[in-house]
Design a protein around this nucleic acid. Sequence first.
DNA 1: CTGAAAGCGCTTACAG
DNA 2: CTGAAAGCGCTTACAG
Lengths: 354, 354
Amino acid sequence: MGRQRSRTVTLTDVARLAGVSVATASKALNARDEVAPETRQRVLEAAEELSFQPNVLARGLLTGRTRTIGLLTDELAHRFSIPILLGVENTLANGQMSVLLCDARGDAIRRQHYIRTLIARQVDGFVVLGDSNDLRPSLTRQIPVPVVYVYGESDDPRDLSVLADDEHGARLATEHLVSLGRRQIAHITGPQSYRAARDRVASLRKVLASAGLPLVGGDPLYGEWSQRWGRNATRMLLSTHPEIDAISCGNDQIAAGAAGAVREMGRRVPDDVSIVGYDNWHEFAADCQPPLTTVDLNLQQIGETAVRHLFAALDGQPTSGVVRQPCRLVVRDSTGPRLPHVRDRSSPQVAGTT
Amino acid sequence: MGRQRSRTVTLTDVARLAGVSVATASKALNARDEVAPETRQRVLEAAEELSFQPNVLARGLLTGRTRTIGLLTDELAHRFSIPILLGVENTLANGQMSVLLCDARGDAIRRQHYIRTLIARQVDGFVVLGDSNDLRPSLTRQIPVPVVYVYGESDDPRDLSVLADDEHGARLATEHLVSLGRRQIAHITGPQSYRAARDRVASLRKVLASAGLPLVGGDPLYGEWSQRWGRNATRMLLSTHPEIDAISCGNDQIAAGAAGAVREMGRRVPDDVSIVGYDNWHEFAADCQPPLTTVDLNLQQIGETAVRHLFAALDGQPTSGVVRQPCRLVVRDSTGPRLPHVRDRSSPQVAGTT
DNA sequence: CTGAAAGCGCTTACAG
DNA sequence: CTGAAAGCGCTTACAG
């Protein structure tokens, strides 16, 4: 580990080797054109030979910009955080910026501490990544540089928040079922306390209403984001409403549970009952039996969009309000056209073998 | 977004307000005792009033230490990366250090670029997070500060690598099955190309041998890390080796698939066939039917351990070689003592309703 | 106990 | 085209 910690090569070393002043060396390396080509060449060679890495701190002290962004997350352990984080990191790197990562872990004290730390570190801007898409208190007042909010909406409309478009996602899913000829559609989702759950329900209701279709049971089944709930809710639904021909699920875990329960009750997926999930969580959606049609939130693009708006703000072009990132429907085998209803209990579980 | 970008408060401002020199202000704020208590008090009040945040860049330029660590990941999208990242971030924060995050996304060019960036940013050390626990080429030669490797082992024994202890984890799982009286144990796992898969197999074999037990089928079933493979492999196993009374699985997805297949074939979990997973991936393990007994890799502690070793190296106490973080067995309902074998096909799937 | 001065590594007007 | 000088914000010997 760091066995030979050699003295850092500095611009002075490069200048000396090239036989010029540090001022000239600086200009040569920064491609200013007030330098003779040969001089420039000599400096570049010297820098190369010494593996010179300009000290970013010194530069930052002068320019007042560190090319660093603070990423302040509420809860990085959240599954949604990672793809967004990836999008943020990637887009920042493309803009030659680095990201300081601070995970508050849902602790307000800790968050406050991190805000101070990041400011002391002279970050050029903040990305605040929420842990739910509910409204959250704005932090902008305490932060002297541009801030964008991602996945959780700031309660100050002068801030910019980049969110998943749940209205759009639920619409895609529901319209897909309707277009397949499904007429008896039920909805199983997570806790009603989640804005995501409520927003998707509202959108689903709107699509069903405009298609002149009922929501089976009248109301969605609110529960939890788990396979277990998906299974149990599906059993209840199928016993009380055997006419069901499609189930829209609030996430892929629920959908995976639902698919299992439908098969266990002797109905075919997708022929008898089509199932659509939400999230495109690969391990659940693609590995389900059958693989799930689902909605992808484009989380990485959400991160990317947020950073692009942050870049604009850094360039003096701040935006505010809410930007919603459109979703994408991923069609797999759990949805399909209606087929004649055949009760075939002989082989309730079909599955390929490798 | 950053609506009022006020000029940053500097130590000079604080000194002026307190009516002292910047030198004295600096000493007062840094709790040097060569300052009169009243002076000190006045400076602290001034700093408080102005919400002074010392510019960390300037300090870093002087001291040569930035209190920043570069976290270079191979593939952050990897599920294992997140808990380790959390452990790293948390432990660094406890030591008043920050983390610059760079995800190479499996791209060597990109990794090289990030190494340069992090060095230019004067990080005090590196944490290199691998994407598999195979050997990997050491990067230490190019890096002038201490480096620790996590989750992937450096091929240079002079480096320090902190790894999951797969030998230990597989031993815990196997000994658990043996201690429950299981005598016909099979093993389903992922691709043989994974060192994790092979190491766990070796450990399992050792435990079985010393207990005088066979590995059912003679060899493990290598396949993929999916529920689908777990289901298919289990079906094959149960048809060719109906005597099986336990299945050890290479991860929780395989185990979840196995549990489903066992139930579908009319055997009880855990009474007839006990199943143990690996990873303690909550969404699969805890939400399985029944919830899975599994091995937790203590990933967060791996990150923590790595950072503690890095701190030691920063303090001039580098270590080298391999440190293995012990695992932890999490016992849930998928394993239990042997019960009289009862063929009961009438209710193959029992499940609680909410 | 306090403060003037030097300096960390770099960039940028400004002379020459 | 080149280089001496000032300065970014801070810390640390060193005088006083």
